[in-house]
């Protein structure tokens, strides 16, 4: 049994290392497969902006920045792997000469704060209500919650966010229109308050749009599970209905949701794109939006790599947690 567990873990780790390596390699190759090179794009941009021709020394400097295009692909790949290992993602073009790593480091806490907490909150609320609704399908609670969730899930997120921004930000003026904090308060006593104030609307809109999906998923699993014999046996044992509901029904119905939750956590960085754009929230999503619109290749590459690795990490955690909560999957690992 113990040996089986160990082997299972080793196999999973090996799988994820291989996947991470291919993700890094793709991240290296794709920009290089695109026609043209960043140097000429930037030179053209600078020419357009200034209306003058760019001196050859400047062109050479920019080329140096991106690495020598005449160097062999293998040499470039090797250099790239080395810099990734050192967490060195190069310098941003749009905010030259800030290192990409620094920008990512500045954006990451904001995204984790916003999307991390809201994903957790939406999962907890949706799953909790889903358990209650699925316990008595067709009951009063179910009759109210299920249509409501279907309705909420059908609303496009950006629309909800824009309406919220318009009503609560512009018309009522309850919450700030954008940003993650009040720059005037940076490092001062009121800073934490201002962070919370800026968090409310983006967080509320995410929870509002996301919890319905969790609710429906959990409710449907609950309905299937409630008709299982082991739930009937729990009742026959004379256990309290709360115990039967959680330990027998919900405990089993939760299993598929755990996978979904891990995927959602993995998607935290990428999933925040829309929210962060609408609310100009200073996270990774906004950074990516900025990078794409300004053709900041190193920054884009950095964000992509970070997103990919987060998804992998979350999947790994999900796999491991699943093995812990569902004893049956341990067999498969042997």
């Amino acid at each position: 049994m113990k040996q089986g567990k160990g082997r299972f873990l080793t196999r999973r780790v090996a799988f994820y290392v291989a996947t991470a390596w291919s993700a890094i390699t793709l991240n290296f190759l794709i920009p290089r497969l695109m026609p043209g090179d960043p140097t000429s794009v930037i030179v053209r941009q600078l020419q357009k902006q200034s209306g003058e021709s760019i001196p050859p020394e400047a062109v050479e400097a920019i080329q140096k920045l991106f690495g020598d295009p005449r160097a062999g692909l293998l040499q470039q790949y090797w250099d790239y792997l080395g810099s990734v290992a050192r967490l060195d993602f190069g310098l941003s073009i749009s905010r030259f000469p800030t290192p990409v790593g620094e920008l990512l480091g500045a954006g990451l806490p904001w995204t984790l704060l916003l999307v991390g907490t809201t994903t957790l909150l939406a999962f907890a609320i949706g799953t909790g209500l889903g358990i209650a609704a699925g316990w008595k399908p067709g009951g009063r609670l179910d009759g109210f919650l299920s249509p409501l969730s279907t309705f909420l899930s059908a609303l496009p997120y950006f629309w909800v966010a824009l309406i919220a921004l318009y009503v609560f930000g512009l018309v009522l003026g309850w919450f700030p229109l954008g940003g993650g904090y009040d720059p005037d308060l940076y490092g001062r006593p009121g800073f934490l308050g201002s962070v919370l104030e800026h968090l409310v609307m983006p967080a509320a809109t995410i929870v509002f749009s996301a919890f319905g999906g969790w609710l429906l998923g959990m409710r449907n699993m609950m309905i299937t599970t409630v008709s299982e014999d082991y739930v009937l046996l729990g009742k026959a044992k004379g256990l309290s209905s709360g115990r039967v509901m959680f330990r027998y029904a919900a405990r089993n119905a939760l299993l598929p949701s755990v996978t979904g939750f891990a995927m959602a956590i993995g998607g935290v960085l990428g999933g925040a794109l829309l929210t962060e754009i609408v609310f100009s929230y200073p996270g990774i999503g906004y950074l990516l939006y900025d990078a794409v619109s300004k053709r900041d290749y190193p920054l884009m590459q950095g964000v992509f790599l970070l997103t990919t690795l987060t998804v992998l990490l979350a999947n790994f955690v999900a796999d491991s947690v699943y093995v812990m909560i569902d004893p049956r999957t341990r067999e498969a690992g042997r």
């Binding site: 014999d229 082991y230 729990g234 027998y248 405990r251 089993n252 299993l255 049956r328």
Partner: peptide
């Protein structure tokens, strides 16, 4: 098989 709780 169906009457015993599979996760306990």
């Amino acid at each position: 098989m169906d009457a015993l709780n599979p996760v306990a």
